[in-house]
Every structure is written in structure tokens, then in C-alpha cells.
Amino acid sequence: MTPVGQGAVWTVLLVPILLGGLALGGASFARVLDARADGRRVTGAVLAAPLSATGRLLVQQRRAVVASDRLLARTGVVLVPVAAVLAALVVPWGNVAASDLSVGIVWFNAMEVVTWAALWMAGWGTNSVWGLVGGYRFVVQGLSYELPHMFALITVATGAGSLRVSDVVAAQDGLWFVVWMPVAFAAFLISALALSFAGPFDTATGRDVAGGVLAEHSGVDRLLLLAGRWLLLAAAAAMAVALFLGGGSGPLLPTWLWTVLKSAAVLGLLVWLRSRTATLRMDRFVEVGWMVLIPLTLLQALVVAVVVLR
């Protein structure tokens, strides 16, 4: 397998396109699952529903509640998709990464934490109880998934001996990391759902708080938040492929296609998981995160460290 290299400057433009394509695919798949649960036939309109919903939100009026902090709200709204694209910059597509930073893993983590601030601002800024509650629910969730998430990333970095994502991919030449770091992989998938406030981790936008952070956003603002959430999920799926599933390695097909296929598979798995579960209550999940996930991921890191040192 050819080693991953730094792409030309123009490859940066490819990142939002690839990520957007993945995100659209994921959203369509979610609509298909919805339609099947509803007992409707899966038609072209169902598959294109994310696109038509985008059109609908583009023409919808933006609104603002009185005495809202529009500067903070709009900043937060814009930051969500921006953070997703920035995080995906370090993901290698086949053997080209738009920006193969020497600290790619830390960069990914930092950009994904930007969502904390973004959602908080988007919720707080609307001057609505629902938004406020949604905002700090997400922070509670962040504090419970972030440490296991970091330990999973650290485990991968330890296994590869580098924080550079391309080195991680190269280190999986013989054996995919998912094989000997299953706990880290599971923790990463859990946090992938959590960081994109999707599926069982959608307390920040739950129906029990009338949409939470989303409650008062309409029109373009809402579109950016929803699109950003799908982009984040797609970015996390693509990163999971680079970190655990051998990146673009695979027979016959070109490496970039393998990356896309594997990312789509991981994304599909995540979307299916989120359709099968009820929302995890944060008062319950905090304890699981700290009492179960952190020790498990620490143990996984220890095992990997011992194997590497041996």
C-alpha cells in the first residue's frame, strides 16, 4: 500500500464535497429507515428528502426571539459545520490527506470540541429555556464522553507511535487496529454518535425539550445546525476508518474508493444504531462514562502500551 501523503492545496476543497456527499447519503439512509418504520414505500422522493428539506429550510423565514443574543447564536450556528469540515481536514482519503498535520489526532479532537462551544452559544443565544437546557445538556454529555474518547485516540496514537493520522494508517499495514483495540473502537463509535449529538445521544436536541438547541432556530440557521450534525457524524465515521479500519487498504479498488466505502459502512452502522435506541438519559450515562468507559479505555490503552513496548 502506498503511504499517505500531503495533498495539494486544492484538495482542501474536496473535503467539504466528500464529507457532504457522505452526510447526504447518511441522511437519506435515515429517511429510508423512517419510511420503512412508517410503512411507506421507499421512493425517489424519500431518498431525496434531505435535499428537499434543505430547499425548504432555505426559503423559510429566519426568526429571532426578543432579547436574544444574536451574535452568539449565529456564531454558534455557523461554527458547527465549520468545525466538522476542519476536523475532516486531517482525514486521509485513500492516500491523500488535505492537511496531514503532525498532530492530526489532537487537531481532530480540538475541532470536534469546538461543537461544545458552538452548541452552547446556539442554545444560549436564542434566549429560550429549551435552548439553554439543550446547551448545557450537551456540555454534560461532552464531559461524560470526552475522556473515553480521548483515551481511545491516545490508544491509537500509542499503537502507531505517532499523532500523525497518516502514520496511524501506515501502522495498520499488517493488522487493522480494530482487531487488537476493540474497546477503543467501541468507545470511538459511542463518542462519534455523542459528538454529533445524534441517536441515543440527542439529549441536546431531544423532543422532550421541544428540540432543545434547535427549538428556536428556523430557516438557514436550522439548516446549518442540522447539516453540521450530519457532517460531524460523517467526519467521525471517516476518522474511524483511518484510525481503526486500515484507511484505504483493500483489494482491487483504488484506495480512495475503499475509504469512502468503509466510511459509508461505518456511517450506515451508526445511523442504524441511532434508529434502534432510545435517548440515553444523561444522569445515567454520566456514571457509565466515568465508572465503566474510562476504566475500560484506560485498560485498553495499558494493554496496547505493553504490546508496543514488548
Partner: peptide, 10 residues
């Protein structure tokens, strides 16, 4: 950047 975002949100 990473630490400060978390700190400021808290």
C-alpha cells in the same frame, strides 16, 4: 485551543 474551549464552556 482544545483545553481552553472546554474550560470556557465549563
Amino acid at each position: 485551543i482544545l483545553m481552553m474551549i472546554m474550560e470556557m464552556v465549563v
